[in-house]
């Protein structure tokens, strides 16, 4: 249930990003779309924008403040920003950790 909500937040963030992008560079709003890394749709600024939008979205919709721009996120073995599914899984882990504290 929570994963679905997180994916919704990420897809809404992609929708907002698309409002800033030209027609030929629109990002398909699917959980599998490759966002960063090889073949990814986002450049570094796009990734920053995604991080900020998702952080805001999680705070607004799920009521929890998380950070996706810290070293931990960047040091993950599997790139959490590869696609929405992986990012949602990473966010879910962060939320579970916060709950268990």
């Amino acid at each position: 249930m929570q994963t679905e909500a997180i994916i919704r937040v990420i897809l809404e963030a992609l929708e907002e990003l698309n409002r800033q992008r030209p027609a030929e560079l629109q990002i398909p709003r699917t959980p599998e779309t490759v966002l960063s890394g090889d073949g990814g749709q986002l450049d570094s600024l796009g990734l920053v924008n995604l991080i900020l939008l998702v952080e805001e979205g999680v705070a607004d919709k799920l009521g929890v403040r998380i950070s996706l721009s810290d070293e931990r996120a960047m040091a993950q073995e599997a790139n959490p920003f590869r696609n929405a599914n992986l990012l949602a899984a990473y966010i879910r882990r962060l939320l579970e950790e916060k709950e268990s504290v």
Binding site: L45, V48, N49, I51, L52, E55, S69
Partner: peptide
């Protein structure tokens, strides 16, 4: 954060 990460 937007300023420090992207000069936004």
């Amino acid at each position: 954060k937007a300023w420090y990460l992207g000069k936004i």
